[in-house]
Amino acid sequence: MVLQVSAQPGAVTADLPINRIVVLGDARFELPADQVQVSVMLRYTDPTDARKAYNAHKAAEQKLIQVLRDFRIDEKDITYTLLNVRKNVDYYPQPGQRREEVVTEQQIIFKLNDLKRYADLQLALIGAGFNQFSAAFGSSKAEESKVKALEKAIEVAREKATIMARSAGRTLGGVLSVRDTEETDPVLQRRYVDTSVRVGYGSEKASVDAGLLDIPQKIIIPAQVKVTFELR
Rank of each mutant, 00 (worst) to 15 (best):
I154D: 07
T184F: 07
Q37W: 02
R179K: 14
P186Y: 03
D185Y: 09
V102S: 04
T81M: 00
F133A: 04
P32N: 10
G173F: 07
T104V: 02
R69C: 01
I219F: 10
A168F: 01
N113H: 11
A50D: 09
R117N: 08
A128F: 06
T171G: 04
T184C: 03
A60H: 13
I163N: 05
P95V: 12
A128Q: 14
V193C: 00
S167P: 00
M164Y: 02
V103P: 05
I21E: 14
E143R: 12
F110H: 09
Y201R: 08
G138Q: 14
D26W: 05
T79Y: 00
K63C: 01
Y201N: 05
S139F: 03
L68S: 01
G25T: 10
T228W: 01
K111R: 14
V193N: 00
L68C: 06
V227I: 05
N19L: 01
F133D: 10
I18A: 15
P32I: 00
V23L: 07
E151V: 02
I18K: 12
E183T: 11
K58I: 03
I73T: 12
K76H: 09
G138Y: 06
R179W: 02
G174K: 14
M164N: 04
V102L: 03
T48C: 03
E182L: 10
A165H: 08
K58T: 09
G200R: 00
A206P: 08
V38I: 15
S39M: 01
F71N: 11
P47T: 13
I109E: 02
V67Q: 13
P17H: 07
V89G: 04
R72W: 02
S203F: 04
G129Y: 02
V38Q: 01
M41R: 14
I108P: 08
K141T: 05
P216K: 14
N19I: 00
Q37C: 04
A27H: 11
F110G: 04
L68T: 08
L42Q: 09
Y91P: 00
K152H: 08
T184L: 06
S177H: 12
D74N: 14
V38M: 05
Q94A: 15
